[in-house]
């Protein structure tokens, strides 16, 4: 804990003692007061532990991946640092536990991790199993192509009609996803994200449907290799997952996220936003709260 925080707590304790004496009520120490409000809550556990344990992955840029130096970075990872700062005034008081996407819900529900931040789309089904934090990013879906492909722009793709081939990760709504914006295009469903991009690289497909953040990341990293077709659609909300039944922890996380995105602690968030998506969040305006 920093000196400021200790002083603040001491002040609070003194203040409460004074109030208690004058009110003729019980005198509580600061930590007892905190304990009373957070008894049995994960918030208490995390504070006592001195670091927060965040479940995330390490195999998906720009959300959670290892950079050239082997350091775990990404937007999800940054949210973890933001939590650490809000808890302990030290963004490094966080331990990341690597997990397969299949473990996102089990790991938080069995308490193996305090919170999961792993590009998790908020859905009604999932919300019945975990508590979602407020959304920290709105993901979309976009088209990516290469500079060398003839039909790499959205207008050209649309004009090509059934002559355009679009690759996408195989899943239930794949065909509909593509036909929403390119009704006549041929759809090539492939088993992994990497193979989808491979198809675009080798020009077997004119374009691919991938996450908007992935398009931004790849184009920013390899502008001579990838090309943003300029069309985005769909929106999905990314939220962090917490175990149900813990109001204090959930509200704390929400407060921490909201402060980092709209309040006075926006430095970490903005830096990551710029680094991973190549964009700046809209300006924060004092006055009426729009959050």
């Amino acid at each position: 804990m920093t000196a400021d925080r200790r002083d603040f707590l001491r002040l609070g304790a003194v203040g409460m003692a004074a109030a208690g004496l004058s009110g003729g009520g019980l005198v509580l120490s600061a930590s007892e007061a905190a304990a009373q409000s957070a008894e049995g809550s994960r918030l208490r556990t995390v504070l006592d532990r001195g670091k927060v344990i965040v479940g995330t992955g390490s195999t998906n840029a720009p959300w959670h991946f290892e950079d050239e130096a082997g350091k775990l970075v990404g937007m999800d990872v940054t949210m973890g640092h933001i939590l650490a700062k809000a808890l302990f005034d030290d963004e490094n008081a966080v331990e990341f536990v690597l997990q397969d996407p299949a473990q996102r819900i089990p790991n938080v529900n069995t308490g193996k991790v305090d919170i999961v931040v792993q590009f998790m789309t908020m859905s009604g089904q999932r919300a019945q199993l975990v508590n979602f934090s407020r959304p920290y990013y709105v993901e979309g879906v976009a088209l990516i192509s290469t500079p060398g492909t003839d039909n790499n722009d959205f207008s050209k793709l649309l004009a090509a009609g059934s002559g355009a081939t679009v690759a996408i990760l195989q899943n239930v709504g794949a065909e509909e996803s593509v036909h929403e914006v390119l009704p006549e295009a041929k759809v090539m469903q492939l088993d992994t994200q990497a193979n989808v991009l491979q198809a675009v690289d080798s020009k077997r497909a004119d374009a691919a449907v991938v996450d908007l953040s992935t398009v931004k990341w790849l184009v920013a990293r390899n502008p001579d290799r990838y090309y943003d077709s300029g069309k985005q659609w769909h929106t999905q909300l990314y939220g962090a997952a917490l175990k149900q039944g813990d109001l204090d922890w959930l509200h704390f996380v929400n407060s921490a996220f909201t402060i980092a995105m709209f309040g006075h602690e926006t430095a970490l968030y903005d830096e990551a936003f710029k680094k991973f998506f190549g964009a700046t969040p809209p300006a924060r305006v004092p006055g009426f709260p729009t959050i």
Partner: peptide
């Protein structure tokens, strides 16, 4: 897992 980590960064699977 290490293989997947590098792929996650470079997107070059093959």
């Amino acid at each position: 897992y290490s293989i997947n980590q590098v792929i996650g960064r470079t997107y070059e699977a093959l």
